[in-house]
Simulated scan of single mutants.
Amino acid sequence: MTAGNVGGVWLDRYALSRVCASPYWVTVMYAGCPYADRSAVLLANDRATAELSRDDLVDALHGHARIGARSHDDPAGRAEQATIADGGPEVLAALRAGVAAYERHFGHLFLICAAGRGATETLHALRRRLTTSAEQEWETTREELCRINALRLDALLRDVAAAGGRGGYA
């Protein structure tokens, strides 16, 4: 079987690839199985994300929708960005323009852990990040990716536990 055991919960490569689109991250996370508990999974995420090369980060970015996009085929991303959609039209327009400026400036997708952030807060963070160096921005992107991965891993473990997996947590 091509799955890893997490405290009795099986995580396969496909499930891990839905958390993070970097093949390297998936391979590292899968190789670390079995994990004793949720904390071990999250620690492994911290380590695997810290090891990502720039090319691996680019791969990971392919698994994320553009902030403020009206529609995309990423259910996790839609849920994570739900509070951004509540911004007023002016803020959303400024956010879309800021994201475009960011992508022109840095040459890659603007990634931020949007869960629980409103459009205004996200816009302020975007504007701050536009003033950083390219090297600092890659590190910030890595930190944001790690946060997003942790949220997605939590959701994955909850789903597995709800489906009757033996190693879930409440």
Score class of each variant (00 low, 15 high):
I84C: 00
A60W: 02
Y24T: 14
L57I: 06
W10H: 02
R117M: 15
R128I: 03
Y102T: 02
E144Y: 08
A101C: 00
A114C: 12
A93Y: 00
R18E: 05
R147V: 14
P89D: 09
R142M: 01
A31V: 03
I67G: 10
G164Y: 04
G68Q: 12
Y24S: 11
T132S: 13
V58D: 01
T83H: 12
D46C: 03
L126C: 14
A119W: 11
V91D: 05
A76D: 15
A101D: 09
H105P: 06
D154M: 01
W10T: 08
A134R: 14
G167H: 04
H62T: 13
D74E: 07
C33E: 04
S39H: 12
V41C: 06
T141E: 06
A21L: 00
A3R: 15
Q81H: 09
R152T: 08
L126I: 11
G4F: 05
G168Y: 08
G164N: 05
L95P: 01
A31D: 08
H72W: 15
D74Q: 12
L109V: 08
R117E: 15
G164C: 04
R70G: 13
G4Q: 13
D74N: 15
L92Q: 09
R147E: 15
N5S: 11
G98R: 03
A79D: 14
A31W: 00
L92V: 10
S133M: 02
L109R: 06
E90N: 06
D37I: 04
D12N: 10
L151D: 12
Y35S: 07
V9S: 15
Q81C: 03
I84K: 03
G164P: 08
G32A: 10
D56A: 12
V28Y: 11
A94Q: 08
L130M: 13
T141Y: 03
A115H: 13
R66Q: 09
E121F: 06
A65C: 12
H108D: 08
G168Q: 10
G107M: 10
A48N: 07
A40N: 01
Q81V: 00
N149A: 10
S39T: 14
R18F: 13
V160F: 02
